[in-house]
Amino acid sequence: MSHFVSGDCTVHYDDRGPSDGLPVVLVHGHPFNRTLWTPSVEALTAAGYRVITPDLRGYGDSDVTPGKVFLSGFADDLAALLDHLGVERAVVGGVSMGGQITMEFQRSHPRRVLALVLSDTSAPAETAEGRAFRNALADRLLAEGMDGYAAEVIDKMLAPYNVTALPEVAAHVLGMMRSTDPEGAAAALRGRAERPDYRETLAGVEAPVLIVVGADDFYTPVSSAEDMRRLVPHATLAVIDRAGHLPGVEQPGRFNAVLLDFLRTRVTGRA
């Protein structure tokens, strides 16, 4: 694990694989940390890619920024991380909130994007109902901590059948949620409640795009992925069977096969 300073925050990250490999940045969602990507890191580095996985500010080992952190703040941290590593352009991908940070990175730092990977995420702006929900949840996490929330949403983060079928995966996901600092989670929720509409951003993307979704995703169903696919006609859409909101850990073999095929055929141009 390494770290650097972005603005007022120390951000921790892993940088694995060959230093001359194609750089791939993977951004976790809420309320997780960089270890969410462990199966993908192993698969991609074995294939010769350089994989960079940060802990977002407020999550994992990174510093907490209290109050409110906008998606643009997270995206600027990613740009600062690439600057720190001397990486000009990268494949950038994320799941859930991480996918929205990826879209924000495309909006604010488009020249640094080689390709986009959008997993189990959505592009429209937050609704009034969603803003109220996220702000109320932020208040709750600050008052009660993460344990009750984690127990309530585990069968939505994972497909319900995978909570029992994949006990080690469920334990890992629960552990990440429970260990997240409530202040960091609340700040991200308040910022995400004000997220902009990324549909115009997606419609203008010329770089290769991979859209992935679990077939049984509770939060961002297959229909949301299909909506994004219609915005980006050249995008590749993959639906991962037997998975919910986190197909990268629920079905890592299938998820990584799709990701590696996309990188090989759409990004590096190798057949």
Rank of each mutant, 00 (worst) to 15 (best):
F4D: 02
V5Y: 02
Y13H: 00
G17F: 05
P18Q: 09
G21H: 09
P23V: 04
P23E: 05
H28Y: 09
P31N: 04
F32W: 06
W37L: 08
P39F: 00
A47S: 15
G48C: 08
V51S: 12
T53Y: 10
P54M: 01
P54V: 06
P54S: 00
L56Q: 14
L56W: 05
G60E: 09
F70N: 11
L71S: 12
G73Y: 06
D76E: 12
A79H: 15
E88S: 14
G94S: 13
V95A: 14
M97R: 02
Q100W: 09
I101Q: 15
E104V: 06
E104P: 03
H109Y: 15
P110S: 07
L114Y: 04
L118V: 05
D120P: 01
P124E: 06
P124N: 10
A128D: 14
G130S: 11
R131A: 07
A132L: 14
R134D: 04
D139Q: 11
D139H: 03
L142S: 03
L142Q: 06
L142E: 09
E144V: 05
G145H: 00
Y149F: 15
A159Y: 05
A165F: 01
V169N: 00
A170S: 15
V173L: 14
D181C: 01
A185P: 02
A187Y: 06
R190Y: 05
R195W: 08
R199Y: 03
T201S: 14
L202E: 07
A203E: 12
V205N: 09
V205F: 07
P208T: 08
Y219N: 04
S223Q: 15
M228N: 07
P233I: 07
A238M: 10
R242T: 01
L246D: 11
P247V: 08
P247K: 12
V249M: 10
P252V: 08
G253Y: 00
R254Q: 01
A257E: 12
R264I: 03
R264S: 03
T265Q: 01
R270T: 05
A271D: 13
